[in-house]
Design a protein around this nucleic acid. Structure first.
Lengths: 229, 229
DNA sequence: CGACCATTTGATATGGATCAAGCGATGTGG
DNA sequence: CCACATCGCTTGATCCATATCAAATGGTCG
């Protein structure tokens, strides 16, 4: 069975007061738009940002830190849906409720934007409407890749996870993992022990190096990709 | 390892000629819209409707029959992404390529609609734009549920699958399965043998009855739901 | 230094995969 | 119309990847 994260819930929900402009080189109009609409808020380690089934009043963008979204089954098994790194937007729903819970993994700064503002903007601006659709489609793609991960062997899952993280982190061949082994395990549908053992295997086969437990060097990317099926 | 489906590819791709009106009681404006725009086409058993990475020129709606979408890993493992029953829309992409392949499972009638028509309509009509977004969000939700299925035990997966199918088929407590055990296995990330054994277990525990291999009677829905975690 | 928490490592158990055979339904050709 | 091949499914025997249980190690912070 999986983890039982220690979560000290913190209700922010009075957020997103005043507009605040953050000069930022975002890659598309939408991301810029968002930057202009939101209020940046700090969240501590393991603090809840929103809970599953809560009204989806806000949309969020990671400024710094890392966020996990997850669901917990009634017997305590936890599945992490995604990790969000700086620049990523999360919590966007079409319906009125969040389908996952979200927590900061480490001390994080999160831009908080009223969903209603975006939606009403989309009603007037086709471009924004298309961006919202595109965002949801991006989430769909990630969910589909996640499905493909979950049918693979432990080695393949871990290799796939490392490659994914490497791709997303700017620094291509070295990954700094903000999340614990438990988080990785709950993302990959494995146990913490299997994740740990698999990392040591990959290290022994010279595919990676693990200077510290939170830092992974991709030493043989070809080998990892081969495992990635 | 999973299946190697026998697929006789059939390139329709000259489809969607003339508009044709099908009087239909669809639940929302979008579905109606689609009905007016498309051309119904027949697809035989195991015939490909489109392939992964092909240009996503069309959007599809099942009139009759059943469709599976899937990906195949380079070593032959197949993962079924979804089953589509009459009334369901599939193949809608925001990007320009299909991310899965699609095949008819049985003799099927499929409405074929030009994607460009929908997209340009959406540019003019906010309501249509929102429907497209909503559709993609629906797919996302299903993908997320699928992820939750894949971390469960074999019994839980099979029970979950049966409940899902029952919910979608009009007839609540009896399910007619258009797909083979192999299809079910590849959807659930199990082997055909495990699916079969699990069904017998569920039958022995009086949760279901299996009068014929393609017909399942939900005899004790509470027991199945309990398994559904 | 000592307590605590995250991670690794070891020993064993087990759920589901794999390998193999049997069975029933469907269809085909003689 | 029957014999037989084929196909989809089930059942049985065994194996193995990963889970589980348990303990040791290491890093961090008071």
């Amino acid at each position: 069975m999986q983890s039982q994260p220690t979560t000290q819930t913190s209700s922010h929900r009075q957020a997103a007061r005043t507009a605040r402009s953050l000069p930022k080189l975002a890659s598309n109009a939408f991301a810029n738009q968002i930057d202009l609409m939101g209020a940046p808020m700090p969240f501590g380690r393991n603090v809840e940002i929103y809970g599953e089934n809560e009204p989806a009043e806000y949309v969020y963008k990671v400024i710094s830190g890392t966020v996990r979204t997850y669901k917990v089954l009634n017997d305590g098994r936890r599945q992490i849906g995604a990790f969000y790194l700086p620049g990523d937007i999360f919590g966007l729903e079409v319906g009125d409720e969040h389908s996952f819970s979200a927590e900061a993994i480490v001390e994080s700064k999160i831009l908080v934007v009223k969903r209603s503002a975006l939606v009403s903007l989309a009603a007037r601006d086709n471009e924004v409407a298309r961006q919202l659709w595109t965002m949801t489609a991006g989430e769909l793609q990630r969910a589909q890749s996640h499905i493909m991960l979950l049918i693979k062997t432990a080695q393949e899952r871990v290799a796939g996870f490392l490659l994914e993280m490497a791709q997303r982190s700017a620094a291509a061949s070295e990954v700094d993992l903000p999340m614990s082994r438990q988080d990785i395990a709950d993302y990959l549908g494995l146990t913490i022990e299997t994740v740990s053992r698999t990392l040591t295997q990959l290290e022994n086969s010279a595919a990676i190096a693990v200077p510290t437990s939170r830092r992974i060097v991709l030493r043989n990317r070809a080998a990892l990709s081969r495992l990635n099926a």
